[in-house]
Nucleic acid binder design. Sequence first.
RNA 1: GGCGGUAUCGUCUAGCCCGGUAAGGACAUAGCCCUCUCAAGGCUAAGACACGGGUUCAAAUCCCGUUACCGCUACCA
Length: 482
Amino acid sequence: MVRVRFAPSPTGLPHVGNIRTALFCWLFARHHNGSFILRVEDTDRERYRPEALDAIMSGLRWLGLDWDEGPQVGGDYAPYFQSQRLEIYHKYARKLVESGSAYYCNCSPERLDKIRNQRLQNGLPPMYDRNCRDKKIESDPTDTDTVIRFKMPLFGKTCFTDELRGEICFENSTFDDIVLIKSDGYPTYHFAVVVDDYLMKISHIMRAEEWIPSAGKHILIYDALGWEAPKFVHLPMILGPDRSKLSKRHGATAITEFEQQGILPEAMFNFLSLLGWSPKDDTEIMNKEELISRFDIDGINTAASVFDFDKLRWMNGEYIRRMTPKQLTARLKPYYEKWGWCTADNPCDDEYLDKVSQAMQERLKVFTDMKELGYYFFTEPTEYDPKGVKKNFKPEVADWLNELANRFDSLSEWDKPNLEQQTRDFANEMDVGAGKVIHPIRLAVSGLRMGPGLFELLEIVGKEKVIARLKRAANWIRENIN
RNA sequence: GGCGGUAUCGUCUAGCCCGGUAAGGACAUAGCCCUCUCAAGGCUAAGACACGGGUUCAAAUCCCGUUACCGCUACCA
């Protein structure tokens, strides 16, 4: 039975790197019909942020990563908050002290600081000097004057098999006597993760590769407790464009920001799955079901990968293009409301919005592109693209636009064919190419030099508005161009 | 410093285990086609086996060394 957990620490906004790890865990669990467990590692009271957990959970939900056990859903191994499992850690910590595998230590943080600096100055690894190791201090996990440290073997080697990288070994002498229980009674990560993974019957520890160095220490703790360790899978990291660990300074890295920027969860899911994993053929666009059936450990890469925002945008565009106009409208609507485009005096009936969706669909990479590329379907252009003005707003164009406004006004039917016929006829009469007329109209109605086919655009924007905008542009030209 | 991990186009990657490919795909870039513009689409171009030694008829692939990059080195996770 595959049981994997995602164990975030609620210290801040959920980072894409962590979320990608969660996604791999989830895919692995779903592929093997196993369980995906969410466990909250809230043992650091200093960095704890109460709002972080909500952000993490909504990030997971946004992507569709549902958990079988954990906060809000419970489970057979509750509680899933480490802060609620203190007695459990204390119990096993006492056991370790009794068996001689751990010891109480009353060294002050000041002293620890001092020896660390000394050793650093002498070019030595900044390890604890094991001052209390053999003092046999009597205390209790709850005592705030002491911590519990693990008695690391002084020599020998500890090895473990990483499912991706093979055997990895460490010299025991390089391990510090790490703290298991802090003076505040909370366990450190190293201890809590071992106890919980074992007690919760985790089959595979899937976590980022930055944990490789501590895996050896964890193995030793498992041994001391007489437990068999789960399998280890250390996932490659995600890097920023400068190849350092992806972080805030690389721009949008919190999962919530992608949502705000108009990225589809489906696209994000697909994109993230391909960051560090490959289906081995050239398939790139895959839905959740395909991903579940194809994902497995052997496709996971060992090298870290750079997060390429451009490729995400491309993939998002792929997903946008695959939607029906109605589906696109549904996704776009919240943004329209946010931008104040859907109000009483603006046409926001679904039929209209669907037409806009259809016209704009293949021009959008992210939803927020709509704000610059399609605003004219909702609000009057207040300025005209300067390059377009220079190219298309010649003095004589003012008359053309007025004339066009009149002719459009008398159109029997406001539709694409009629608009096109009328426009081309006019160009012929003026003895110019159709483009010479089309471009000024586009600029007058949309303010832009780019967009959907002009006649489709005109049909959608509607008779009244088009005519008003043509006249308005004509006046603008008279006032500004000579 | 110590310990560990990693190394194929700018980026994501296939190929490596089981030596023989014109080293394949995608994003981005450039050009062309399509065209009322922008997209989308189609075609084309440019672009990589970190380096040095072996082994072999033959090495991206196997062996050794070097280099570079990244991570860890807390009473943080």
